[in-house]
Write a protein that binds this DNA or RNA. Structure first.
Lengths: 205, 205
DNA sequence: AAGAAAATCCTGTTTTTAGGGGATTGTAGG
DNA sequence: CCTACAATCCCCTAAAAACAGGATTTTCTT
């Protein structure tokens, strides 16, 4: 059976690179590419790939969101996340949103083929480096924050004081203060500076 | 005359992509690739490309640093910066450090060939999108901070208080406070939260 | 050598955050 | 129905940061 491959990435060179890598591979059929989420969804209305290689950083909506959307509408399609970053947060996020694999953009041809094969067999695939990261960071905490906390966090990062946030959200300053305290606790940050630094690096903001 | 091309990028897929794009181009000779700064410098001791396509994000030292190093030792080699990000700060940094061009990784074959040709002619090349960014951001302020200010900024982001920073740097707390004030003024930030957010996004930290 | 820029230090006041305790309401899931 | 959690609110104290004005001494550049 031929495995039909489709790729979603906004980097022309990556698309070319993967096409070049997969060109002569046996049992694979290159269906083409989309450079954003919208045209990907449009493509899927009329075509049915077995595997989608999906970049995490897309121009319109994030690959994470797109992954969820694809899986909801087309549960049979296997999704392999693609990214330059081997960050725990990325890997977790996309794997939690329907992806069956994660491959770094510096992967070799062999790794890529291995990933495709593994996912076609119905198993999960993590590239060596990604697996290492996940293993190393077992137990490392990525805080789970609530909607309201995220809202407050965002306003803090924009330079608003508790007082201003309270006015903006029509809540008491003491409530804002509580949210702030909880954020500091969840991120295990000593003060606002560390909080913002951590939140930025973990892509919360 | 044949233009000899060498590429430095740690992403296998990008290397393949560019090779695939340039494969059938006339007048170009593909010399190979390096995946980090060290092996790039080693290669240059025995080979002389006309153009180096240089990724900004390398595993060992940054492409910016490498660009400077290459230009110092081999001033004749034309350097074209390569990156996924069309951020003013990146473009400026690499162009200020010896690069003659800047191309985004979602560039088309035509753009890439155009860039190579332009740089070979001794001119500077900015990809359309990059040029747009630079144009749009003329006058937008990227603060210039001093060594000491950068040091203090970094410690602030790590969660140290003025007091702790003073102890660490063997200076008075009032001095630290002054540096902090100057940082806030230079970044036009209202408070630490905005300062850290802006500094992070502008890659100061 | 002169001037500019950087780094250092000072005295105040006011605002904001951090840390310690709480408590109440509503709502979603088992 | 009950429990957990989110979201809301309160008091108090101490610490830290922000704001406003300075001044002196290095260090670099021209």
């Amino acid at each position: 059976m031929t495995t039909r491959i489709f790729i979603v990435d906004d980097h022309y060179m990556i698309i070319e690179g993967i096409r070049s890598l997969l060109q002569n591979a046996k049992g694979l059929e290159w269906m083409g590419h989309a450079m954003n989420a919208t045209s990907c969804m449009a493509f899927l209305q009329t075509h049915q790939p077995h595997i989608i290689l999906l970049d995490i950083n897309l121009p319109d909506i994030s690959g994470i969101e797109l992954s969820k959307e694809i899986k909801t509408k087309y549960p049979k399609i296997g999704i392999i996340g693609l990214s330059s970053y081997n960050q725990q947060s990325y890997i977790n996020k996309i794997m939690d949103n329907g992806a069956s694999g994660y491959v770094l953009k510096n992967a070799t041809k062999e790794e890529l083929l291995d990933a495709i094969e593994t996912v076609m067999d119905g198993e999960k695939y993590l590239s060596e480096e990604a697996a290492l990261i996940v293993k190393k960071n077992v137990g490392s905490k990525i805080p789970i924050i609530t909607r309201r906390e995220k809202e407050v966090l965002s306003l803090i990062s924009e330079g608003l004081t508790n007082n201003q946030i309270a006015t903006k959200l029509f809540i008491s300053i003491t409530t804002v203060d509580t949210h702030r305290k909880n954020l500091l606790a969840k991120f295990e940050a000593k003060n606002t500076a560390t909080l913002i630094r951590m939140a930025t690096h973990l892509e919360f903001i």
